[in-house]
Design a protein around this nucleic acid. Structure first.
Lengths: 171, 171, 171, 171
DNA sequence: ATTTAAGCGAGACGGTACGTCTCGTCTTGAA
DNA sequence: TTCAAGACGAGACGTACCGTCTCGCTTAAAT
C-alpha cells in the first residue's frame, strides 16, 4: 500500500493531494486519514518502506573507516531516484506543519543522529577520535552537510566531499 | 509596504495567505501579484528589508577571527524574533515551489556562500588557512551547520558550537 | 428495539444517521440493514409501534359523527410529542427515496385512505351522505387538510378546523 | 444562470449535488454558496424563474369562476414537466432543513395562500360566497388537496377533481 | 457433548458529497 | 488611469455517512 504512494511521489509533486493518493491507490480518503495524521506521514512511511534507509554501523575497525562507510551509505541512499525529492518534501512539511515537525524531528532526525552518535562513542572508547570532535559537533557537521546538500545545493556533491569530510573529522 | 508584511509574518503562520497580506496592508491582491511572483518572494523581500542580514566581512587579521565574526553575526541575526521562522518558511517554500527555489538558491543562498568564500580566499591569500579547508568544504560545513540548526534542531545551539566550529575549521 | 429508535427520533433530526441509530441502540449497522431496507423504514416501524395510530371506525350512528370522530382522533395523534416530526420526515423521505415512497404510499397512506373510504361507504349505505361527497373527494379533502397542516402550517389548526370540515363535508 | 440549474433539475434527482450543479453550470461551488444558502434555495429560484408560477387572479365575475380558474391554472402548472418533481423536492427539503423550511413557508406557501385569500375576500365582498366558507377553510382545503395530489397520489387527479372541488366550495 | 451455523457487536473499507478555504485571474467603481 | 475591493472558476481540504464487507464471539439446534 505504501509502495503505491511511493509511486505517486516519484511522479509526484507538491501537487500531491490526499485526494490523488486515494484515487491512485484505489482507496477512500478516510482510510488514509484513519492510518496517517497527514500526507507527510504517508510519505515518511513510504520512504521507510520503499527505500530501506538502513545505514550500516558495522565496526570497520577505525573511526575514519566508520565515518567513511556512514557517509558513503548516506550518499548512496540519496542517489536512489525520488529519495532526495521525498526528503526535501518532508523537511519542508516539517517546517510548515508544527505537529508533523515534531514527529519528524523525534522519529526520524533524532534517530539518525543517535546512530551517528553511537559511532562517535565507539571511536571515543576505541581512543582514535581526534581531539575536539564531540558527538554534538560531529553530528551537526555531518547531518548539516548532508541536508544542505539535499536542500540547498545546485550541483551534486560527489565523492570528494566525503573524502574531505573524513579528513576534517577524523584527521 | 514590505514592513507591513513583516508584521503579518511575525504574527503569522503558514496560515499566511495572499488574501491576508492584502487585507493587512490595505491593498488589493492584484497589487501584490503585480510586484511579487509569489508570497514567498514577499517574505524574502521583507526579510531583506526588515532584518538587515548584513554579515561583516571586515578583516579581523586572521582566518580564525574572520570565521568567528562571521558565525557570531549569523547566530546573532538568527536570534532576532521571527527571523528563524521566516528562514524556515522560505527554505520550505524553496523545496515546494520549483521556481521560487531557483530564485532563492541563486539570489540568497549562493550570495551568502560567495561572501564566505571571499573570506576563505582572503585567508588562503594570507596563508593562515589550515590544509584541507577548501572553500567548498568550509561553506558546506558552515552553512550546513547553520541551516541544520535552523531547520532540524530541537534545542538552541549556543556559543559553544561556534567555538567548536572555529577550532575545527581554523585549527 | 424500535422504541429506542423512537427516542433517537424525538431528540433527533435529519441529522439522524444509521450510524447514530446503531450506536444509540447498541447494535451494529449490519443488524439494522438486515431488518430494514432504509432508515425511513425504521422510523415507519417505530411510529407504528410507539404511537398506536389506530383511528376508531366505530359506528357513531351518523356520517357527521363518524367524520367528527375520525378527525378528532387524527388530530389527537398529531398532538403526541414527536409524531408530527416523524410524519414530516417520512413524507419527506417518500419524496426523496423512490422505493421507500412506494412502500409508504401503499403500506401507510393508502391503508388510511381505505379506512376513511369505508366510513364514506357506510354513510352512503346509511343514506346520510350529502350529494357530491364521493369517497375520492372526501379522502382527498380530509387527508389533504391534515397533511397540509402537518407539512405546511405555521400555526396549530385547533378544533374549529375540525368543526368547519365536518360542516363542509357532512352538511 | 438559474436556467442552467433548471436543466440540472430536470435531468436531476435527489442525486442532485452542489458539486454537480457547479460542474454543469461551469462555475465554482463557492459562487453558488455565495448566492444561495442551500441547494434547495437554488431550486426554489429556478422554479420561480423557469416555470412562471403566476396564477391568474382576474375577476371572472363569480366566486365559482374565480376558483375554477385558480384550480385549473394550478393543475396546468403542475402538468409542466419537472415542476411536480421540484415541488416534491422542495417540500421534502422544507421538512428536513429547518431554515429552508422557514423561507419556503413564508416566501412561497404563505404567498400563494394570500393570493387565494384575496379571491375569497373578493367573493365575500361580492356576496356570492356560500356560508361556512371562511378564507382559512378554503385555503386549507384547496392547497391541502393540491399538495396531497403532488406528494401522496398514486394516480393523476384529472379534471373531475377540480369540478368536485368547485361544487364543494362554491355550491 | 460436540459440532455447526446463524445472528450479533464492532468497525474498517471504497465511495460520494459536504461546506470551507485559498489560489491566481478578472471585473468593477471611486478618486 | 490607477487601484481597493471583491467576485469568479478551480480544486484540495478534512468530515460525515453511506452501504458492503469481514472479523471474532455467543448462543441454540442438530448431531
Amino acid at each position: 500500500m505504501t509502495a503505491a504512494y511511493e509511486l505517486v511521489v516519484e511522479l509526484g509533486y507538491p501537487g500531491l493531494s490526499v485526494e490523488g493518493i486515494a484515487a491512485r491507490s484505489g482507496t477512500g480518503k478516510q482510510t488514509i486519514y484513519r492510518w496517517w495524521p497527514s500526507k507527510a506521514d504517508v510519505l515518511l512511511d513510504a520512504l521507510a518502506t520503499k527505500a530501506d534507509l538502513h545505514i550500516p554501523l558495522d565496526d570497520t575497525g577505525s573511526w575514519a573507516g566508520d565515518l567513511q562507510a556512514f557517509l558513503a551509505a548516506s550518499f548512496r541512499v540519496g542517489r536512489m531516484p525520488g529519495v532526495v525529492h521525498i526528503l526535501r518534501t518532508l523537511m519542508a512539511q516539517a517546517q510548515i506543519d508544527q505537529e508533523f515537525g515534531q514527529r519528524f524531528r523525534v522519529g526520524f532526525l533524532q534517530r539518525r543522529r543517535e546512530a551517528l552518535e553511537a559511532l562517535v562513542e565507539r571511536a571515543a572508547a576505541r581512543g582514535d577520535l581526534p581531539a575536539g570532535r564531540t558527538a554534538r559537533l560531529v553530528t551537526r557537521v555531518v547531518f548539516g552537510v548532508i541536508w544542505y546538500e539535499v536542500l540547498a545545493a545546485d550541483a551534486d556533491a560527489g565523492e570528494e566531499l566525503i573524502e574531505e569530510l573524513v579528513v576534517l573529522l577524523a584527521r
